[in-house]
Every structure is written in structure tokens, then in C-alpha cells.
């Protein structure tokens, strides 16, 4: 029994270790202006190189641990967003990137907008900015990874209210 417990603990630790070192992400644009998307793409390119944290952006939700969302949620994209989220294996984390993804941003009050991502999905990390600088996006990802190391449970698992992890905007020039 005792042995079993440590064995499970170790497995848990191993899983966390693996998750922290190689989170795979999928990016979904649910109505953004593209500004955030190009900044996310920019984080992959040589100058910012997000892959040094092990984060890899790839195509299929079924392989992803992290869902990076940009843009306000449009009516038409809502179902796709939920479907993609549900296709992801547990535990899964959501990062909302950009003012739009936080609250609807500049598009608040438009007829096709439902609001921010957290209207639809439980969000773990909010990265403000319009668009956030690549550094801020990386910061958001790293904050998530640090929290994971500290035993953070995904927002989806914690019952009831969401506890957002605010990420400060870096000093934009």
C-alpha cells in the first residue's frame, strides 16, 4: 500500500515533469483581427524562439495540452472553440491572448460577439495587450509552466469560480 502510494506519486511527478518540459499547444482564432495571431507566430521565430521552453505549436487538438486563444468569441466560432477544447486530452490549460480574448476588447457590443474567451471556456492565463508583445505572450506561457511545477490544477478542474492568473504587460516602448 505504502509502496503503491509513492509509486503513484512518482508517476504524478514524472507526468508533471514531462508536461512542464514539453507542453504542446494549439492556437485557435475565434474572431481576432490577426494582430494577436501574428504575434503568437512571431514568438516561434528566431528572435523570440518560444520553443526553448519546450512549447511547440502544432495542428491537432488531440495532441495539445495548452489551448492558446485569440480574439473575441464570435457566434459562429463558438461551437468550434468548444469542440476543439473538448477534443483536447485532460489536463488541459487555456491561455487567452489579447484584450479581445479577455473581454471582447474593441469589439464589445458588436452583434456577432459573445465576449471574451472566459464566456465559453475556463481560462487559466490572461495576457492583456492589443496585441500583447511577444515577450508578454512568452511570459504568460512561462507563468503557466511555473504554476504547473507548483502543482497548479487547471481552471477547468477547480470547481466553480475561475481564478485568473494576471500577467502584467511588459514595458511596451
Amino acid at each position: 500500500m505504502e509502496f503503491n502510494k509513492t509509486w503513484q506519486d512518482m508517476l504524478e511527478q514524472l507526468k508533471t515533469w514531462a508536461r512542464v518540459n514539453s507542453p504542446w499547444a494549439i492556437h485557435f482564432n475565434s474572431g481576432s483581427c490577426n494582430g494577436c495571431d501574428i504575434e503568437i507566430l512571431a514568438t516561434l521565430t528566431p528572435r523570440y524562439d518560444m520553443e526553448r521552453f519546450g512549447l511547440k505549436l502544432q495542428g491537432s487538438p488531440r495532441h495539445a495540452d495548452v489551448l492558446i486563444c485569440t480574439g473575441p468569441v464570435t457566434r459562429q466560432a463558438r461551437d468550434r472553440l468548444i469542440r476543439i477544447y473538448e477534443q483536447m486530452p485532460d489536463p488541459k490549460f487555456v491561455i487567452a491572448v489579447g484584450s479581445c480574448a479577455l473581454s471582447g476588447g474593441a469589439f464589445q457590443g458588436c452583434y456577432n460577439i459573445l465576449g471574451g474567451i472566459d464566456q465559453v471556456l475556463p481560462v487559466d492565463v490572461y495576457v492583456p495587450g492589443c496585441p500583447p508583445r511577444p515577450e508578454a505572450i512568452i511570459d504568460g506561457v512561462v507563468k503557466l509552466l511555473e504554476q504547473l511545477k507548483a502543482g497548479y490544477q487547471p481552471a477547468a478542474r477547480r470547481s466553480g469560480v475561475l481564478r485568473p492568473v494576471p500577467v502584467p504587460v511588459t514595458d511596451a516602448g
Binding site: T74, R75, Q76, R78, G109, Y111, N112, L114, V120
Partner: peptide
């Protein structure tokens, strides 16, 4: 417009109001 947009509600008409198209979900 989204697939679930109500019929006969036209957003660019002047008398369109947000309430005419209730938000889904």
C-alpha cells in the same frame, strides 16, 4: 452570418437591435 442566426433578422438595417438576435449558449 452564423448558421444559427435567426431568419429575417438583418443586422445592417437601421432598426436592428441587439435583442433581435439573442446570444446563444
Amino acid at each position: 452570418l452564423p448558421d444559427d442566426w435567426p431568419q429575417e433578422v438583418y443586422p445592417l438595417r437601421k432598426d436592428f437591435r441587439l435583442e433581435d438576435a439573442p446570444l446563444p449558449g
